[in-house]
Design a binder for these strands. Structure first.
Lengths: 253, 253
DNA sequence: ATTGATCTGCTTGTCAGACAACTTTTGCCG
DNA sequence: CGGCAAAAGTTGTCTGACAAGCAGATCAAT
């Protein structure tokens, strides 16, 4: 049963408070290093209990906006909000334009990872990719769901770069688009040949990586990502102005 | 007075609880969609008050591990922990190897951003870059601190891509290395010519971007990042374009 | 018997007050 | 003036309570 998206945000008191304080910090009303008003003051000001204020501050602490010291107070961090990167706001909005931007970011790191994987892969890395490829082959043959294997394949490439930070970021970006892989591996996707087409792209990527061909791996990844973008209805010509002479390569007139 | 880094984590009760539950989720003890034990149960199990449990769960909610519904309970998210990306663990560790990985990720997005900026920049974007460049020029001439202008320059390039997600990510990555810009703009940095060298790199990037030369902008950014990496003692041999079969773009001269 | 509404227990959200642990300021005394 | 102890203030934790909302059980009606 499909989950109904809640249109109206439930009025969470603590969320209201934390968002307000977050705005204060963003607007510079509360500069880095400055001490926040006391919990008692805030609770009086917002007209809520101290528990709500504590919950709001707890959220701000988790997101790296503030830090609190017992007995002293809560202070704005030196680089507020820079402890973690989140694009939930972009994706949750379901704004097509925002999704284009996020997908472009994914495109950038995926293509770079393919090139690095071609240079640095080890035998076990290749084995992981091959195993994921085979599972997708089986899914294509059986018209089954290969979304998980698809995900695993991209993660295996990221792992082959030997860069855990890059690997974690690609995994992060991939999860943002996990739902978008459904149309590819659905019954309609199989019927329309989308699954087979995606698999062909994966095969090209794998061969280039296995051959140590960094440029080829990047190009194969680029094509694969462009196809995926088109399946999502993303207008790729805006970021791919030269279909014949690809992409970011040569200088424009 | 310099702040002493606290070596021993102060025993935060709520942090202990949240870390434990986070581990449960990571280990699969609590699978996605599963309902957490009730707050009353948890508080009894951990031997703490319900307020502490609520604070711990509040943190888990902020980090996207769980979501709670009033009257029903708290449930593990479908993709726990994938709401935000953080590499604080890597950087905080001050592990040189980890920093190499993070810097490589920054290298990937910065070079891509330079190429995109060359294609998409507007006049105001160029003005912002030019303004930051001038401030750095003044800093070089006066042997002053140009770290902020340096940061602003890179952010201006990111803004010129017209991709807010990419912009935010570059800003995020840049802040991770804000401290690393100190040796460039310190007195020793000026004396050793590091500030002037960095500024020359910025100038090359700006000219290529202003000319709409995507490949040139990418290459200038690559060189700039390689120099910065070398100053940090990072091995960049995999970043160099391959002599015969160049890295991504077209044949280099 | 199935369906529908209602009821009851349970869980989270919020409130209030209190004490403990700790920090900062104040004020006294040498 | 300097050092030290008391005091005031702040966050961390505990306790108890009630409101708001949910899920399953109960029960009535067709």
């Amino acid at each position: 049963m499909p989950q109904i998206a809640r249109l109206t945000r439930p009025s969470q008191l603590s969320e209201t408070v934390s968002k307000t304080i977050e705005q204060w910090i963003a607007d510079g009303v509360l500069a880095p290093g400055v001490k926040l008003p006391t919990e008692k003051t805030l609770s009086a000001e917002f007209g809520v209990s101290r528990a709500v204020v504590r919950e709001a501050i707890s959220r701000l602490k988790a997101e790296g906006y503030v830090a609190s010291r017992q007995g002293a107070g809560a202070f704005v961090e030196a680089r507020p909000g820079q402890a973690s990167f989140r694009l939930a706001d972009d994706v949750d909005a379901a704004d097509p334009a925002a999704m284009v931007h996020v997908f472009e970011l994914r495109y950038i790191v995926e293509t770079a990872a393919a090139a690095l994987a071609a240079r640095r892969h080890s035998a076990p890395d290749l084995a992981r990719m091959r195993e994921a490829l085979q599972r997708m082959d089986q899914a294509v043959a059986a018209c089954a769901d290969g979304a998980q294997a698809d995900d695993d394949f991209h993660v295996a490439i990221a792992a082959a770069t030997g860069n855990p930070a890059l690997q974690r970021f690609i995994r992060f970006m991939g999860h943002q688009f996990f739902d978008s892989r459904v149309p590819t591996w659905s019954a309609q996707g199989h019927a329309a040949g989308r699954a087979a087409a995606a698999q062909a792209g994966h095969q090209r990527m794998f061969e280039a990586i296995a051959a140590g061909d960094a440029a080829g791996a990047r190009e194969a990844a680029r094509q694969h990502m462009v196809e995926a973008a088109r399946r999502l209805g993303i207008d790729t010509k805006d970021w791919d102005p030269a279909p014949q002479a690809p992409w970011e390569e040569e200088a424009l007139p």
